[in-house]
Design a protein around this nucleic acid. Structure first.
Lengths: 185, 185
DNA sequence: GATTATGCGGAGCGATGCTCCGAAATCTAC
DNA sequence: GTAGATTTCGGAGCATCGCTCCGCATAATC
């Protein structure tokens, strides 16, 4: 996406991304943008020119991850057990959504915002996930009335619950597995 | 809790609670505290004296709800089907957690904060929920390895996912029912 | 080296959460 | 009712936030 930029602009762009990664990791997605600019050795105006909104900055960091998850879903189609493939993928989506504190909100926002910059990556990931789901359903391993939206909302919700339960580090995995097999007998 | 307060103080306390309810309903839990003070016809200093933190204000609004959910759990022990009783209660916990946008975070925070003002209400609700869960487990309607923490995290997570899916108004109910019976066959 | 266009920086705006203390209102005792 | 003690009020003020705007610096081009 950043093509034909002036040398200093390209440099600042990269500095901002590294600074943002560090700040988001440290303070969550609500980290101070002023602080990110400071860390990057850049004026606040420069940050806003490169990334007009906080969401744009987050999405620039998420794009690679979304693409990777899309490819991963495609790869998991080779997995012999459709059920395990789906569960593995969901766990990875949840883990990715929990990279930064507060990220699940942004993931859900990106999923529903059609005008988003990374709607393409997003749609590709969703489509790849759909194929994974349909395969599991065709084989009868998963209920037929589940939609991809529900699956992704579930993964994000589980990631959210995980980051709200600091005392129980395995909460996300646990809830995901419960949702898969059900609480009831 | 507010005993032996001066008349004006008591009046302002009530005004603040009503104003807070309205503001949180309108703008979510991140509503401006200055605005709440303004609506209550009160200075900002007065708000902070009565409720030193935003969380304190939210908890004052949540206490009644927590108590009610505790009593509700006790009442549902009379329900013939332990499974249905548990599911009904969980749905009501989730609905209560979604009263205001952003409330699930505060609910989870109150659940884990032992020093919280409403830890008593909180513990009572958790205990009542536990009895509901144990009854369902004793009857074999629910897996034996489920904990109350997991149940409450699940309810909050489901409430969160619901408010992140504005296009799908039934998402919370749907995810809860999926978690109950499981995605897999 | 001169010209042009692109990108940079930070002062500045309005709003936020929160503190602090002089002023005002209530309560108590007579 | 009045005086005095005590509680409560109110908002000015501070630091910080997200975000805009425009004069200035700097890289690219010739």
């Amino acid at each position: 996406m950043p093509e034909a930029l002036r040398a200093d602009a390209r440099h600042n762009h990269d500095q901002l991304l590294t600074a943002a990664r560090a700040a988001f990791a440290e303070h969550g997605t609500e980290a101070s943008l002023r602080d990110i600019a400071r860390r990057a050795g850049v004026g606040i105006g420069t940050l806003y020119r490169h990334f007009p909104t906080r969401e744009a900055l987050l999405q620039a960091l998420m794009r690679d991850r979304f693409d990777a998850l899309g490819r991963r879903a495609a790869g998991l189609l080779a997995e012999p057990s459709p059920r395990d493939a789906l569960l593995t993928w969901l766990a990875e989506v949840a883990a990715g959504s929990a990279t930064y504190r507060g990220l699940p909100e942004s993931v859900m926002a990106a999923l529903r915002d059609e005008s988003s910059e990374l709607h393409a990556s997003c749609a590709a990931m969703r489509a790849a996930g759909s194929r994974l789901l349909e395969r599991a359903q065709a084989q009868g391993a998963v209920r037929a009335d589940i939609t991809t939206e529900e699956l992704l909302a579930l993964a994000a919700g589980v990631a959210w619950a995980g980051e709200q339960s600091p005392g129980h580090p395995q909460m996300a995995q646990r809830l995901l597995s419960l949702a898969m097999t059900g609480l009831a007998h």
